[in-house]
């Protein structure tokens, strides 16, 4: 089954690249924070404290933008690395849809599409419903 093997290699390769990019961004970001003694308005000691006030409730995804990245804001690079990591399983499900439809396995194409839809629901719709109050 050469067609299937090619897809499994693609998934393995995509995961390795995703994980590598994520780790590189996180390491780069931490180095920047140490070198700059902080990031943006935050000082190093604030960022590195276990009771840190800096968490994702005050850091929208838009914190990662052209300005923060071009000013070498280390926090933005760490956050970007974490998002890349969180995206790897989603990417794997998306590749799965392509894989099963390519194999003309319609039952599993449907199953994987439902899983993908559930994921999108959980990421983009549920937080708005749950966190409103």
């Amino acid at each position: 089954m050469p067609r299937q093997i090619a897809f499994e290699d693609l998934i393995g390769w995509a995961l390795r690249v995703g994980v590598l990019i994520s780790a590189t961004l996180i390491i780069f970001g931490i180095i920047l924070i140490v070198v700059h003694h902080g990031a943006g308005y935050y000082q190093l000691s604030q960022l590195f404290s276990i009771h840190s006030i800096v968490n994702t409730s005050s850091l929208p995804v838009s914190y990662i933008n052209a300005s923060s990245l071009s000013h070498l804001n280390g926090l933005a690079y760490v956050l970007l690395g974490l998002i890349v990591l969180m995206a790897t399983p989603i990417m794997r499900v998306a590749i799965g849809i392509a894989q099963f439809s390519h194999e003309r396995d319609w039952l599993y194409t449907l199953i994987t599409a439902i899983v993908f839809m559930n994921l999108m629901l959980a990421i983009f719709v549920i937080p708005a419903l749950v966190l409103h109050h």
Binding site: I50, M86, I90
Partner: peptide, 18 residues
């Protein structure tokens, strides 16, 4: 875990450095 990522993010459970 990925399905919970957005709720965790918006709830402020993720301390980026840790």
């Amino acid at each position: 875990a990925a399905s919970g990522s957005a709720i965790y993010w918006f709830s402020g459970l993720i301390q980026p450095i840790l």
